[in-house]
Amino acid sequence: MTYSEEKKSGVVCFEEVNQIGILTIDNGSQNKIPQPDFLDLSFLKEWISEQRLKGLIITGKGRHFSAGADVDNIRANKDNPGYLREALKKGRDILNYIESLPIITVAAISGICFGAGLEIALSCQFRIGTANALLAFPESNIGIMPGLTGTIRLSRIVGKSKALEIIITGRTINGEESYSLGLVDKIVPNKTHLSAAVQFINELTKNKSHQQIRSIIQSVNKSAVEKDAIAMEYESEMFLKLVENI
């Protein structure tokens, strides 16, 4: 296999292996997301433009995908809504860019995938999880809600009523249930999530041209992205109102 030189922006490492980009969240044992704009979007766009990728994988270093946002940082900035609003917009822009990419995108999930981590995973077209994967939006347990497009993308994938139940209760969903809900597309043995994601992309793109893949994905993406823009703005405003009281 041919590996490119590893690069880093924010808490994410960038690497290319045989026309597959791998973004690895690397921030301590739980890979927490310190702020919504967890990487430099201009850096990501430049890196993507330099590659000829057929797919992109987002994963976490070590045992966990990501334990989610750094709540202490949110509390520290709750009296500065202007900063939080701008950070949320930048975070949304990152996830919207990932969702709009005209290549196959896969979140390779192991262990904990909570809050902002789950929102990042939901921006991918597919999610592959290990048997020990645990997914949740625990924000309601501290009096807030997802603020990085989680309410929109989760309801789009599992339906409105199930999304409401998952977000309001803040309960943890194991690998088996996440698969039955369609939240995860495939469950694989522990420690095989990254290799399974690579294999999945290779199988899906086999004997397909870059132009064919791009055309199909762009057509599928178009309506969803345009329809959700207003809802994403509203989610951010509701998030900021709740942050005032934590």
Rank of each mutant, 00 (worst) to 15 (best):
A69H: 08
V106A: 12
Q125Y: 05
K162C: 00
S9E: 11
A76T: 14
K241N: 12
M145V: 12
N31I: 02
R171L: 07
N96F: 07
I168T: 08
I98Q: 01
Q35M: 13
I173C: 04
G159V: 07
K227R: 08
G21K: 13
S9R: 08
Q19V: 14
E176K: 07
S49R: 09
I109D: 13
T205K: 09
G150L: 00
K90F: 03
N77F: 07
L204E: 02
D93N: 14
F239C: 09
K32D: 09
D26Q: 04
K90E: 12
A224I: 08
V184Q: 07
P189K: 15
S223Y: 12
A224N: 04
L181W: 02
E99T: 10
K32P: 10
N190P: 09
F65P: 00
V184K: 10
S29E: 09
I94N: 04
G170V: 05
T172A: 11
K89S: 11
P36G: 10
A116W: 07
S42F: 13
A87W: 12
A121V: 10
K78S: 15
E235I: 04
L204V: 13
S49V: 14
K32V: 03
N190L: 05
G55Y: 08
A163E: 01
Y234S: 09
L181Q: 02
S100P: 01
T105Y: 14
F43M: 14
I98F: 09
R171K: 09
A76I: 04
N207S: 10
A76H: 14
N245K: 15
M232L: 12
Q19T: 03
G170H: 06
K78R: 14
I142A: 06
I157G: 08
T172Y: 07
I20Q: 07
S29I: 09
E203W: 10
E226A: 05
S155K: 05
T105E: 09
S29W: 02
K191T: 05
T105L: 12
L183M: 01
K186H: 12
G60N: 03
V243S: 06
P146L: 11
A133T: 06
K90C: 10
I201W: 06
S140P: 07
E244G: 13
N27E: 08
Y179T: 15
K54H: 06
I109F: 08
N141Y: 06
E6H: 00
L84A: 09
A196Q: 15
S236V: 13
G175L: 11
N73G: 03
L23G: 07
I152H: 03
V198Q: 04
T172V: 09
